[in-house]
Amino acid sequence: ADDTPVPVLDPGRGKTATGRLWVYAADDRASGSTAPRATWYRFTPDRTAAHPMSHLAGFRGFLQADAYAGYDGLYRSGVTEVACWAHFRRKVFDLHERSPTPLTTDILERIAAIYAVEAEVRGKPPDIRCCVRQERSKPLVEALREVLDAALRHLSPRSDMAKAIAYGTKRWPALARFLGDGRLEIDNNIAERALRGVAVGRRNWLFAGSRAGGERAAAIYTVIQTCKANGVDPQAYIADVIARVAGDWPASRWDELMPWNWSPEPARLAA
């Protein structure tokens, strides 16, 4: 899961308010799964914990996201947190880019070694991924934790470096969770990639015209991105499905129109 700000016209104030576009993405191809991929967007007028709690009400499973406290209620309700190594790395990298030190260099190199193992097992079945992670990644993760703990003993708690390290150590069980389950990813990049198009498009459309406009945008993004994740041409899909729905397509066969089940062949034959 992830979210991004969306400017929304605020009539009467002469400016825009800030809404949020949330995304929930499921894509298990990295663990060799052929299950359908789905990308679901929701628009809200603000960013409060009530929204992810509502969106994922009743969900039980793994949730990988950033450290936003709004997800904490889900974790308390039985959802299992999987933290993101890319977010932790970014905290250290930002400091390294401004002022590199032996410590920042060491941490980044150690994280790079963990990612190198991930690159080797990408696309492998979960059992193989888990076995390789236990054998090769777990010692790397444990050694990194020792480096972080040693650094914290010598750094001022108020220093930027200590804060960057603490971002990771406070979430260590969730960061290490990928080691014990080959289905899990090391980072949240699936969701971040799903918001990349929104960030680029926002420069062109600038703002949503209303709350209803934001909700419609979320619906359209859901269709387009889910099509792309399943290797389907969104324009062809939307045109074909609209034509079928406008006809006499039975409600009992909605499943056949999902992007992961859709085929244009019946429409061509009918034509």
Results as ranks from 00 to 15, higher is better:
Asp2Leu: 09
Val6Phe: 00
Gly12Pro: 08
Arg13Ile: 00
Gly14Leu: 06
Lys15His: 13
Lys15Leu: 07
Lys15Phe: 04
Thr16Ser: 13
Thr16Cys: 08
Gly19Ser: 02
Arg20Leu: 02
Arg20Met: 09
Arg20Pro: 00
Tyr24Met: 02
Ala25Cys: 02
Asp27Thr: 09
Asp28Val: 03
Ser31Cys: 15
Ser33Gln: 08
Thr34Cys: 06
Thr34Leu: 12
Ala35Arg: 15
Ala35Val: 13
Ala38Ser: 11
Ala38Val: 15
Ala38Arg: 11
Thr39His: 09
Trp40His: 12
Tyr41Arg: 03
Arg42Tyr: 13
Pro45Trp: 07
Thr48Leu: 07
His55Phe: 14
Leu56Val: 09
Leu56Ile: 08
Gly61Arg: 11
Leu63Thr: 07
Ala65Lys: 00
Tyr68Phe: 14
Ala69Lys: 11
Gly70Asn: 07
Gly70His: 05
Tyr75Thr: 01
Val79Trp: 04
Val79Met: 07
Cys84Leu: 03
Val92Arg: 02
Thr101Val: 11
Ile107Ala: 07
Leu108Gly: 10
Ile111Val: 15
Ala113Gln: 13
Ala116Lys: 13
Val117Met: 07
Val117Cys: 06
Glu118Pro: 06
Glu120Asn: 02
Val121Pro: 01
Lys124Met: 14
Pro126Met: 11
Val132Phe: 04
Val132Lys: 05
Val132Tyr: 07
Arg136Cys: 03
Leu140Arg: 09
Leu140Tyr: 05
Ala143Tyr: 11
Ala143Leu: 05
Leu144Asn: 04
Leu148Trp: 03
Leu148His: 05
Ala150Asp: 14
Arg153Ile: 00
Leu155Lys: 06
Leu155Pro: 06
Ser156His: 09
Arg158Gln: 15
Ser159Asp: 12
Ala166Met: 12
Tyr167Asn: 08
Gly168His: 06
Ala176Trp: 05
Leu179Met: 12
Asp181His: 09
Asp187Pro: 03
Asp187Val: 06
Asn188Pro: 05
Asn189Phe: 04
Leu195Cys: 02
Val200Phe: 08
Gly201Tyr: 00
Arg203Glu: 13
Ala208Val: 01
Ser210Phe: 00
Ser210Ala: 09
Arg216Leu: 10
Ala219Lys: 12
Tyr221Glu: 02
Val223Thr: 14
Thr226Leu: 10
Gln235Ser: 09
Gln235Pro: 00
Asp240Gly: 02
Val241Tyr: 08
Ala243Ile: 01
Arg244His: 04
Ala246Lys: 15
Gly247Trp: 06
Trp249Pro: 00
Trp249Val: 03
Ser252Ala: 12
Arg253Gln: 15
Leu257Thr: 02
Leu257Arg: 07
Trp262Leu: 10
Pro264His: 02
Pro266Leu: 04
Arg268Asn: 01
Ala270Lys: 12
Ala270Gln: 15
Ala271Pro: 00
